[in-house]
Design a protein around this nucleic acid. Structure first.
Lengths: 191, 191
DNA sequence: GTTGAATGAATGAACATTCACTCTGAACGA
DNA sequence: TCGTTCAGAGTGAATGTTCATTCATTCAAC
């Protein structure tokens, strides 16, 4: 396969949804952006819904992998959180479309189903890294999705804003999010 | 005027946008939900855009007022933040449509323009309360919209989740958000 | 020659907006 | 107390557009 048209369609959908929302991402516009005919998307995906889900799953898998890869398993929870947060941010900052697309999905009717699906996936490295016992013990006793919002929500909107931030600022924000979700007394040592 | 149809249309729009997103809130559906004819919305608003803006402004004004009213001006910054946060939350928790509608607007193309408009309004009690010198001094040196997201974003999504939380949990979250946006060493005394 | 990907015009549903019309009630002269 | 008038609120069918989806057909590879 010289050209992966299905991948081109997924990428085009993400770009248009990120820029104009689901409203502005019509199938004909997506096909045009991908450089294929309208019908081509339907060769690979039975409906717009399925295409959206596939585009989300692809991005989410890369996102999880990027975050998990940044973790040093031997470090204490606060440091692991910081590494995870910075790793996720680096992945999103590489291409602003990524964060903007994820934000659109989070605010859409697709969110509930896709989020549940992601949480159920035991092989998700992001979910696994938060499930570790020492992390759990340090977190505030709050519902899972509340913790997720406090920790990851600001990360998404920060990356979407495309504001250049240096490592010191990013670390400050990562630690701020950690302070928001963890019991006092679990701070990482500075540096 | 026995029945304020314009208000009914604004409320219907908020309900439908909250439940189904902008995509699912067609003008005919909004009119039906409001119990009026399709054309009636156009008697009061020149376009769907203008209706959305009006519905947003009405809600935002109430939200700001609710937050500002909860503040005791004599308290230290950390306590004032907690009061503001809890006041805003109480207003949103009264009707889950409020938070869900605000989230939809925040993720939409309307967000940028409406947010800028809100910030420019010098009479907004919410903006004024954050502009106080002692609050400014305690905040992390970060862009305004980043601070806003860290402080208010979790509040919105929390209220949208409709999870019952007691005062202790809410206070814990309010203080978590304050720790996320403030310099270490500005904690409120417990209680 | 067969198979499956790719095409893009065609289809019908849904949308925002318009408009010719009706209804309501306040104003006013008798 | 009536009857008339008028402005503007209210109506809902009609309009033109855009959308997701389909399908008869073409194309490329083996």
């Amino acid at each position: 396969m010289l050209i992966d048209r299905a991948a081109a369609v997924r990428a085009a959908l993400r770009r248009l949804v990120a820029d104009r929302g689901f409203h502005g991402a019509s199938m004909s516009a997506v096909a045009k952006e991908a450089g294929v005919a309208t019908g081509t998307a339907y060769v690979h995906y039975p409906s717009k819904d399925e295409l959206i889900r596939a585009a989300y799953r692809e991005l989410k898998a890369e996102f999880s992998a990027a975050g998990a890869a940044a973790i040093d398993p031997g470090a204490p929870p606060a440091v692991r959180f910081r590494q995870l947060w910075l790793g996720c941010h680096a992945y999103l900052a590489e291409d602003p479309v990524r964060a903007r697309f994820l934000i659109q999905v989070d605010a859409s009717p697709y969110a509930a189903a896709l989020h549940a699906e992601a949480m159920a996936a035991a092989d998700d490295p992001l979910v696994a890294s938060v499930a570790e016992a020492d992390v759990r013990a340090a977190l505030l006793p709050l519902p899972e999705e509340v913790i997720y919002d406090l920790a990851i929500g600001p990360l998404l909107r920060l990356a979407a804003a495309e504001r250049p931030l240096d490592v010191a600022e990013l670390t400050m924000l990562a630690d701020g999010c950690w302070r928001a979700v963890s019991r006092p007394g679990n701070e990482a040592s500075t540096g």
